[in-house]
Design a protein around this nucleic acid. Structure first.
Lengths: 188, 188, 188, 188
DNA sequence: CATGAATGAGCATTCATTCAT
DNA sequence: TATGAATGAATGCTCATTCAT
């Protein structure tokens, strides 16, 4: 991928996640990516599209990683633990991009349709892992869809508030606490 | 409270939660509240302040209800169950307002300071209940702050996605699933 | 009509007719009418609409005057003579506005629909006068629609080129030359 | 002439006459001529110049044809009749290009200087024919300059409105009506 | 108390033009 | 000779805010 495109996406991620989609200006994104404003429009149709490109690449990465973990060998509990640790890492690493996506998603009563279906796909991944665990007798009989969204919420919200309040706890400790809570919530 | 103020707050809640803070215009809020645009500025310093008034009343309500539940008599587990059921109700009832607040909160790395501290207060309420449960030997020894944010995320995210995707499951069932997951995650 | 609206319309007429619709900027119109740019949008939806308001008022005025002349008492030839003299006056008086309308009309293969029908109406007025003259035996048997457009073209184009090249000839003389040509073209 | 230049001029004629000079973009012209955008600037100084080249070739053609008719043998009336028939044909054939030029010309009070003088030249051609007719005793004593512009307006406006409203009348009939009106207006 | 006409800073977007290759 | 990536000045339009009445 073109090096200017990368610079633009990086700058967009920074500016938009700091100020939110609406308050971020194309001027500032251009300035930060050291590209003329026209260049933004040479590579992206408009602000909305720039936002979309940015977010879809994050979704791709998240799905890719999760897919890999979920389909690995091991007990459901082991994979669930790995998944939660990876989510903590992911949210930390892509903090800016993820908060941007989530903010957009939560903030409007009618979220962007493209997000909605991507997120559904993502929940399905988690849901299937839970169902496998139930089938294998590792997990209790819970509603897999509710549990999937609940676990995602648990990890994402806890991680974000940890990031925002940068407490004394280190990341490893946070991840282990969350793994622990999650596995107990599912355990027989 | 003056009936014009009420009309304005009501209109602001509707418009802002439908379109988000940025896209909501003072013009539309004035039109919907059947008040002249100048009147908005007679009663509220500016758009930001109107948003804040609106928002804080929601926080007040949430805290009031939670406070009441947390300080009620009963085991920690009983109170936790009640709290989760109430959160599901609250998020359903104030869906638009809550999504407005959360969207604003999550959507930028630099959230409004007033929200941040209010949310901290709220987490403390939950955190204390968890600590009580631990002290009483009802709950495992978990990090209360992590558990508080995790439980809040679990309930809020699951409820929002349930609202968005309006599935076959009824609200009661959702609440019980979440209570179940939460209590298991904390149980010894 | 509001005094600011008048100032805006006047300025728009001047700027747009000097530079054409596209090259005229809202900034310049605002500057010339000594009104803030926002005020233009307070009174007119957009540039297009400002243009339309401007031109429709001209059409109204032209039709009003022509209507009056055509329906007056007198022979068809007398009224035709008066009509042509009035057109010369009108085009001179509203030079800017008229050149703006005509330019837009001629300049695009698909002229604004609102203009098209207005102009049709106007031709009908002239066409009916010609038909009256034919019926009364004053004029030859010509196709009234062709003659109406031809006479309009004759007067408008000649007057405009006279205005552009501000020659030695005075307006009265020009009008009489055109009356003369027109009546001869129709005379038995 | 280079075949790329031809392609560009052809595309420019199409795009500009459809959308007008301002709304036509160099991008679209490049796309339609299947040439890179830079190539437009290799062969033409700028957009204005491209427009001019295009335009002048139309003027050349019109003047060439008119010149030929005016200087042919025959009575002034015969040549005038031929001239008018040819104008109807010309405006029909080059409808788009002519409307482009005329729209630009009429649309602003400050028309491109190059057009102005070309049009003056063209009027002179017609004017001289009228003067010949007067001298030969065929035409009445009219002001030749006024008559020239009047006749041009008559034919052009009538033809354009005929084109726009594509009525039942055929072109031959239109031309004969106009010849008839013109000759009567000049006849002794 | 309440109004709404008027404002102007701010922003997304367009597009003619340039220039290194 | 030909290209197309890159530019940035220019422009239409929005909207929170003010203030005279």
């Amino acid at each position: 991928m073109n090096h200017k495109i990368k610079a633009i996406l990086k700058a967009a991620a920074t500016v938009m996640s700091q100020k939110g989609f609406e308050k971020a200006t194309m001027d500032e994104i251009a300035r930060m990516s050291k590209v003329a404003k026209g260049t933004l429009y040479y590579y992206f149709q408009n602000k909305e599209n720039l936002f979309l490109q940015l977010t879809l690449s994050i979704f791709d990465e998240l799905e890719r990683r999760t897919q890999e973990i979920v389909t690995a060998v091991g007990t459901a509990a082991e994979r669930m633990a790995r998944l939660i640790r990876d989510q903590v890492d992911f949210f930390s690493e892509y903090r800016e991009e993820v908060s941007l996506i989530l903010g957009d998603f939560v903030g409007s009563t009618l979220p962007r349709e493209s997000f909605r279906s991507r997120l559904q796909d993502y929940y399905s991944l988690i849901g299937r892992l839970i169902e496998e665990g139930i089938a294998a007798g590792e997990f209790r009989e819970v509603d897999s869809w509710t549990a999937a969204t609940a676990l995602f919420g648990m990890v994402s919200v806890a991680t974000f508030h940890w990031l925002l309040n940068s407490p004394g706890m280190d990341r490893k400790k946070l991840a282990e606490e969350l793994v622990n809570l999650a596995l107990h919530s599912l355990a027989r």
